[in-house]
Write a protein that binds this DNA or RNA. Structure first.
Lengths: 204, 204
DNA sequence: TGACAAGTGGAGACCCCCGTCCGCTTGGCT
DNA sequence: AGCCAAGCGGACGGGGGTCTCCACTTGTCA
C-alpha cells in the first residue's frame, strides 16, 4: 500500500486523507446524494482535487466504505466463532442494523457496490450467513422456516428507517429488530421501549 | 366541485383528467421523481398544460393521491366496524402495507403531504387507529407493550421494500408484515413463503 | 358563422449536479 | 537557492430537472 500512498507528495496525501474522512462524515449524515462540491468545500480543497484522487464519485463512495464492509465481514466471522449459534445470529442482525441506522450512506453504498465486489466475497459472506442460519436452526432456537433471504428482507426494511435524525433512527431500528428477532425465535422477552416516530420526521 | 371543474372548457377538462390518470400510473410505477415532462408526454399534452392546471408538481402529487388517502381512511373505518378487534388491526396493517408495496409513489406522497393535510384529518386517523389498538389490547390478542407509534415504524420499514419490481415488493411486504404481526400478537401461525430477495434488485 | 376568451405547446430561463480543462502554486530534490 | 513535476482550484461543458413566457389554435356562445 505504501507504494500507491507514498508516491503522493506529502500535502497531497494529507488532502486525500482529509477528503476521505470528510466523505465518510457527510455520507453518514446526509446520504450518498451529497454533492461532490460539498465534500470538496468541507475538505478545503477544489473539486478537481477530488476527481484527481478518485476518478468518479462512485469510486470515492467505494473507497469511503471499504472500512465498513470489512466491519461487516468481521461481524459475521465473529458470529461464526460464537459457540451459541442463536446469539451469533442475533448479534449479526443487531450489529448490521445498527450500522445501517447510524450511517445514512451505508446501505446505499452497500447495495451500490455489492454487484461490483468480487463475487467471491459475496459468495463467502452469503455462505457464512447461511451456515449461521443452519446452526441456529439446528440448535432449535431459530424457526425452521426462516430463510437466508430474510436477512435481505430485514436489511431493506431497516433501511426504510433512514432519513430521520440519527438518534431516532437508532431507537426505531432497535425496536424493529427486536420485534423481528422475536418472530424469528422460539421464545420471548422484553422489547426496547416504543419510539414516538412521526411521519413529519422524514422531511428533515 | 362542479364550480371549479365545469368552469373548464370541455377539452381542457378532459386533458386535466388524463393528466391525473397518467400521473397516478407513473407515480405508482416509478415513484415521485418522475419528471413533469414525462407525465406531459405520456398524457399527450405540453408541459405548460400541466402547470396551468397544477401550479406546482407538489400540488399535482397531492391531487393524484387524495383518492389513495381516502382509501386509507376507509380501511381504518372498516376495521373499526369489525367486531373482532384483532382482525381489524391486522387488516389495517396488511392493507396499508399492500397499498405501499403496490404503489411506489404512495408513501412518498403520504409523508410529503401529511404535514399539509388539515391536522383535523390527521388527528382523526390517528385517533381511530389508537382506538383500534386499545380494543385489540383489551381483547388480549395484541401485546400490551404495542405502541401506536409502531404503526409508523411498520410503514417506514415496509417502505424500505420499495424499489424492487412490484411482484417482488408485494411478496416481500407480505412476509415482513406476517413476521411483524406474529410479534404483535400472542400466538402463531404459518408465514407466507420466503422471498428470494437480492440486493441486486434494488438497482432496477 | 364569426369573434374572442380560454386553452395550448414548445422554447428557454434558471438551478443543481457530475466531471474536465487549464493556468497558477508549491513541495522536494539537487 | 532554484528548478520542475506534481499538485491545485475555479471556470466551464453537458445533462437533466422545475417552472414561465408567448405566439398560435380552438371551443363556445351570440
Amino acid at each position: 500500500m505504501s507504494a500507491s500512498q507514498s508516491q503522493l507528495r506529502a500535502d497531497a496525501a494529507e488532502n486525500r486523507a482529509r477528503v476521505l474522512a470528510v466523505s465518510r462524515e457527510l455520507f453518514a449524515e446526509r446520504g450518498l446524494e451529497v454533492p461532490m462540491a460539498a465534500i470538496a468545500r468541507r475538505a478545503g480543497v477544489g473539486v478537481a482535487t477530488l476527481y484527481r484522487r478518485f476518478p468518479t464519485k462512485e469510486s470515492l463512495v467505494m473507497e469511503a466504505f471499504t472500512e465498513q464492509f470489512a466491519v461487516c465481514q468481521a461481524v459475521i466471522d465473529e458470529a461464526l466463532a460464537d459457540p451459541d449459534p442463536w446469539r451469533g445470529f442475533r448479534t449479526v442482525i443487531e450489529k448490521v442494523c445498527l450500522l445501517q441506522a447510524t450511517d445514512r450512506g451505508f446501505t446505499a453504498a452497500f447495495v451500490a457496490t455489492f454487484p461490483e465486489m468480487h463475487s467471491e466475497v459475496r459468495e463467502r459472506t452469503w455462505h457464512c450467513f447461511g451456515e449461521l442460519v443452519d446452526r441456529a436452526k439446528a440448535s432449535g432456537q431459530l424457526r425452521a422456516d426462516f430463510s437466508p433471504h430474510d436477512l435481505t428482507l430485514v436489511l431493506m426494511a431497516n433501511n426504510g428507517l433512514a432519513g430521520v435524525p440519527v438518534e431516532v433512527a437508532v431507537a426505531a431500528s432497535q425496536r424493529l429488530v427486536a420485534y423481528l428477532l422475536e418472530s424469528f425465535r422460539t421464545g420471548t422477552d422484553a422489547l426496547p421501549p416504543p419510539v414516538p416516530l412521526s411521519l413529519d420526521l422524514v422531511l428533515s
